[in-house]
Design a protein around this nucleic acid. Structure first.
Lengths: 306, 306
DNA sequence: ATGGGGACATAAACTGGGCTTATGAGCGAG
DNA sequence: CTCGCTCATAAGCCCAGTTTATGTCCCCAT
């Protein structure tokens, strides 16, 4: 029942992958074409950079950099490694901006309240984009369900909110910024994965499903679409738990397409088309009626439409 | 001209983001519900895990874990942080599997040759999927252009190849596994970003563009679509350089949609619709004529269709 | 030709974060 | 009431990564 374990022991991921500092250094070398210049940029000395790159090459077993007396260029393998490294660093940047927003509860210029799904999957990207344009805006983030978001906004404890769901809480104005769809997914081995015809909605309603708990946003939408009929096989309290359960083959699950994009592209899960039910839901920015967002809030709002 | 630099000094990403080992530990705590159990899983002692989580909380300024005498559960903030951490770890896994394939030139059960774009953006995901099903398959990767891929296959130095482009090299059989589209992108500030009507192909052909060098796969497709007319503003030798140049506002660029997915979703770049040119190209798996892939190669091939 | 200045490499010494072992203190179940 | 699980604390060790101080190579300008 546990995830597929790669060889453990003294060889977990952290031992096979260079640390973030080394990856950042590699990106700097790629961009600047010199170990010394890269060293200066990341704030260490040239010998430190030299040794760090060298030990990264030893660790990976691949030459990354062609040294010459007048600079360093990436090898072919180095260019590829650097591109993969860039992904890791970008994920770390998203982590960073999110964590920072979580910390700065107080004295922030922009206080955001968002539903879980949005906070998880979309907000870090938006905050990165915001930081690119307004680097000095301190942002704070509070994640909760729609009611909690509304409460914060109305108590003037947040400047801008984001919710998903069918209705807008009373007292708030809103703008639709994107659409999300719930989809039915199973492990690739599940019989449904081999169907040629879409599932009928009645069939979906009749089958026990892996679901979020009653009261969650996704469950509400599903119940509404099926007329309150969804039958739970298991009820779990986090998106992650539902995904893990579905991947391990426990049964079909219903989840936001945002949450399973990764799993779908790796074919850990497959999407099952369904006929005759509309599982779309709008993602909305919300704010207290009348108080149109201004300043940083307006800026962030404009970044989210696209 | 350099990327937007966040505050440097003693505060680069590596200082603000916990290292991979700590993130893995956090995921283990989330999954197992106990510091001690998580410690055992990642191969350290319980006090080490305790101290590591504690210092991560200090670093982030957020309580992540609720400790109790009978286990540990994530706080709300901790759940969010854990989800963001999972992204970082997944990117690191892709890095790992790619780097491993790059290293194991010799004695591999499956030797793959792939074009740069595919190796960069798609292959790590496929290799992760393959490892999930056949954990013991040693894979080696060689990245190069279509001609190099064909050469390796025909010299029996590779078992399976992946190429993008308009034609299949002679002597190879192929199967289309996906489609890719070249798209025109600019920085959001560029006048084209405000157009309401799609660009005419003649207009595209008349405008100097940021392009890959002549001979690259993407350049070939573009030249063919425009009738050999593409006018370079700058010619650069890597996708990354083209992206960086476009983001900094140097002008419009033409790139694979795979390469700019991230930039588009962060609105660092915007896509410009174009009328009357087909910039689609097929991504193909290839192998020597007659030698249908078997064993691990067949397995990998089946994972890529979808 | 010759010296200067850039690049990277090497060597030795320091530092600190993270590890282990050993122990203590809550809480629940048998 | 004691065993077994949890997590916390304390003390000591160790090594990875750092800095400072050199050395070597190559190009270019004088």
């Amino acid at each position: 029942m546990s995830e597929p374990q790669q060889r453990q022991g003294p060889g977990s991921l952290a031992h096979r992958v260079p640390d973030l500092g080394a990856l950042e250094l590699l990106l700097a070398v790629a961009r600047l074409g010199s170990l010394g210049a890269a060293a200066r940029e990341v704030g260490i000395t040239q010998p430190a950079a030299s040794s760090r790159i060298r030990s990264m090459e030893r660790q990976l077993g691949v030459a990354l950099v062609d040294r010459s007396p007048r600079g360093s260029r990436l090898t072919d393998a180095g260019a590829l490694v650097t591109d993969w490294a860039r992904r890791v660093v970008e994920a770390a940047e998203a982590f960073d901006v999110g964590a920072q927003a979580l910390r700065d509860r107080r004295d922030s210029r922009l206080r955001v309240a968002a539903s879980m799904t949005i906070a998880e999957y979309l907000l870090p990207g938006w905050l990165l984009a915001l930081r690119a344009e307004r680097p000095d805006t301190a942002v704070s983030l509070l994640a909760g369900n729609s009611a909690a978001v509304a409460e914060r906004l109305l108590a003037d404890e947040a400047d801008l909110g984001f919710v998903e769901g069918l209705t807008v809480p009373p007292g708030l104005d809103s703008a639709v910024i994107a659409h999300d769809r719930l989809i039915v997914v199973t492990a690739p081995a599940h019989p449904w994965a081999r169907r040629r015809r879409p599932l009928a909605s009645a069939e979906l309603a009749a089958t026990p499903l892996i679901l979020r708990e009653r009261g969650s946003g996704t469950r509400q939408v599903l119940d509404a679409a099926l007329g309150g009929l969804a039958r739970p096989l298991i009820e779990l309290s986090s998106t992650t738990a539902v995904k893990a359960s579905a991947v391990s083959g426990a049964g079909p699950a219903v989840l936001s397409e945002l949450a399973v994009r990764e799993e779908l592209s790796l074919r850990r899960l497959v999407s099952i088309p369904v006929d005759g039910v509309s599982l779309a839901r709008a993602l909305r920015a919300v704010w207290p009626t009348g108080h149109r967002p201004t300043g940083p809030a307006r800026e962030l709002l404009s970044l989210t439409r696209g």
